[in-house]
Design a protein around this nucleic acid. Structure first.
Lengths: 135, 135
DNA sequence: CGTTGACTCTGTAGTGGCTCCAGGGTCCAT
DNA sequence: ATGGACCCTGGAGCCACTACAGAGTCAACG
C-alpha cells in the first residue's frame, strides 16, 4: 500500500505503462484525472495504480480499450451479474483462435516460399509465387 | 489477356481490392497512375492488373507495404540476385512465428479465465484475474 | 539562496493501412 | 433528355498509441 501520492513517472515505473500512454488514457477517460501539485504535476494515489494495472493486464490479454472500459464498469459493481464478462472473454477467445488459425496458414505458405533458388529473380520462387501463387 | 482498358471498378472486381484502396495505392506510389478518359476516369491495363494482384497477394501473406515495394522493385529486375527476397521471407516468417507463439500463450490465459463463476462480479474469476493475475 | 538536472506540462502531429464521406462530375443505355 | 450506375477529389476518421517542441517544476546540492 502506497501512502504518499506519486508522480506520473512513478506510476509508469510501477505499471510498465508509458508516460505518454498514461496521459492518453486520462484523455480518453479511461483513467480518472488525479489531483495536481501546485505546479501542475499529476499526483496519483493507490486507486490509480490499481486501475492502471487492471487496464494494463487487459491490454496484455489483447482486449480493446472499449472492452476494458466495459470490464472496468463491471468491476466497479460487485453485485452485478458477470455474464457480460463471460461473454467478452469467450468472444475474445474466439477471435484469438481465429487469428492463430490464420497465421498458421500463413506460416505454411511462407515455408513453402522459402528455400529460394539462390540465384536470380527470374527463377526465384518467392517472386514467382507472388506473381502467380502455386496451387 | 484483357485488351480493352477498364475502369477502377473493373480492376477492383478482378482483384478483390477495394476501390478506395486502389486509389490509395496510387497515391502512395505503389500502383502507377493509369491513363485517364476524357472525363477523368482512370483507365487501367493489363500491367496494372498484374501488379495489383502481386500487391494483393503480398498483403494477404502479411507483408508490409514497404516490403511489397521492395519485392516489386526486385521483381522488375529479373537478372538481379534474389537474396533480398529470401531475406524478407525469412524475416517475415520469424515474425509470424513469434506472433503465433504470443497468441498461443494468450489463448492459454483466456482459457484459464473462462468458466466464470456464473454468479456476480464479486466472485467473478475474470474480473479477479484482471485485478490480480493468478499465478 | 542559486543552480543544476531530472522530471513534467500542454498541444500537436505522425504511425499503418486503409475506410468513409460529401459534393460533385461522367458514361451510356433507353 | 434522362436516369442510374459509376467515378472524381479532398479531407477526415479509425485504433492505440508514440514522438516531439518548447516551456515550466521540483528537489538536492553547494
Amino acid at each position: 500500500m502506497t501512502l504518499q501520492p506519486f508522480n506520473i513517472g512513478g506510476l509508469s515505473r510501477q505499471t510498465g505503462v508509458n508516460i505518454e500512454t498514461i496521459r492518453y488514457y486520462e484523455k480518453i477517460g479511461l483513467l480518472p484525472p488525479p489531483a495536481r501539485s501546485q505546479g501542475g504535476f499529476r499526483q496519483y494515489e493507490d486507486r490509480h495504480l490499481q486501475r492502471l494495472r487492471f487496464i494494463r493486464r487487459g491490454r496484455d490479454l489483447g482486449f480493446s480499450i472499449d472492452s476494458i472500459r466495459a470490464l472496468l464498469t463491471l468491476a466497479e459493481r460487485p453485485d452485478s451479474p458477470c455474464e457480460g464478462a463471460d461473454q467478452m472473454v469467450l468472444l475474445h477467445l474466439d477471435e484469438v483462435e481465429r487469428k492463430i488459425a490464420d497465421l498458421t496458414l500463413l506460416r505454411a505458405e511462407l515455408r513453402k516460399m522459402k528455400n529460394c533458388c539462390g540465384r536470380v529473380v527470374a527463377q526465384c520462387q518467392i517472386i514467382g509465387s507472388l506473381v502467380a501463387p502455386r496451387e
